[in-house]
Design a protein around this nucleic acid. Structure first.
Lengths: 193, 193
DNA sequence: CTCTTACTAGAACGAACGGTCAAGAATAAG
DNA sequence: CTTATTCTTGACCGTTCGTTCTAGTAAGAG
């Protein structure tokens, strides 16, 4: 056998994620990454492949480790509607609080790289679809438990919340009045009762 | 005096807009622009300044000429609520129809260049604020004309619609089921009655 | 200890980047 | 027609891009 790695690939990947998240794909150079990651250029290429491979891996990691984890939040037992409401509220507060205004990396990736970048497109679509599914599941449960009207359309409501959340993440990039997002969220939540 | 320009700067600017809109800021090179614009490199620099100046001017142009023009749509006399509903529907259909999935250039600019790029941040904020104002104005009118409940909060509703519209534009970048956006819009519109 | 293997550091690669410059061409004032 | 001014063309600038290559180094197998 041979020499062992001197760094933890997972830790390095998260540092790469940090940079790509903040600056986007094109605006982040391999030189930036080498400097920020603390490993050699060749080690970077040997471990993760080229720039695009690294970006895709970082984006995959983002989906895994992001907090709040919406799927998990919506899967708790008990009343389902409060979970949805809390989710919207947490997205809102996170969009407002986010000091360096990185926004949502999925949204950033979608607007920068779609529609031409297929690997990224797949990741984005998967992320959105799984959130839609989780929301739909929760809302079906909410309807069954009498938390929302029996006539409500869970999937359509889920899609509505999904789209609204993406809007929150975009507008969180601005440095406008925090009340703007809070007002918007309050109105969106008024739909869910 | 001296020689006259051989090209129409406005027409050239719109060609630049086309490219920046499709590919974003970083991914569009000056070489791409020179080729696509049909004018010399030096003419480009002499007329518009550097790459960033050109981008900002293209973005300004985008705000001016975009169709549908939301401000205009919301300023028509008569019933105000249908105008708001039509606006949401047109954004939805445009997000779905948009064949080359360029999305909204304001959204693209916000996610790619904010928060560091101040000139772009100003443009984005102005665009969003003016749309919010137009929506608020229309909804105040709708309330006065009895089209929505007297207890409704026009500004909060406007902010809600504003955020939702940005979400539409983001998710239009994906190539998912068109029904997703239509369902979402239908639910959002259900709020406005 | 020796050998093999995979690691690290950093120089080096051609290509592409944004931007500038020099020379010639066209136009309007005098 | 002459002249002054601004345009166009295209070569050219140094820098930075993503990527590869070359040495040298560390560690387990035999």
């Amino acid at each position: 056998m041979a020499r062992t790695k001197e760094f933890d690939p997972d830790a390095v990947l998260e540092r790469a994620l940090d940079l790509f998240w903040r600056r986007g794909y094109e605006a982040t150079s391999m030189a930036d990454l080498v400097e920020h990651l603390g490993i050699g250029r060749a080690s970077l290429y040997a471990t993760f492949g080229g720039k695009h491979d690294l970006y895709v891996k970082a984006l995959e990691r983002y989906v895994q480790i992001r907090d709040p984890n919406p799927i998990e939040m919506l899967s708790q037992p008990g009343p389902a509607l409060p979970a949805v409401r809390t989710l919207v509220e947490r997205y809102t507060e996170e969009s407002i609080r986010d000091r360096d205004r990185r926004g949502c990396m999925i949204v950033n990736a979608a607007t920068e790289l779609l529609p031409d970048d297929e690997p990224v497109a797949r990741l984005v679509e998967t992320s959105w679809t799984s959130l839609e599914t989780a929301l739909t599941t929760a809302l079906i449960r909410a309807r069954a438990q009498g938390e929302i009207s029996a006539e409500a359309d869970p999937r359509a409501l889920a899609r509505f919340v999904l789209v609204f959340l993406q809007g929150l993440r975009v507008m969180g990039k601005g440095h406008g009045d925090p009340a703007r997002l809070r007002d918007a969220a309050a109105q969106a939540l008024a739909t869910l009762r």
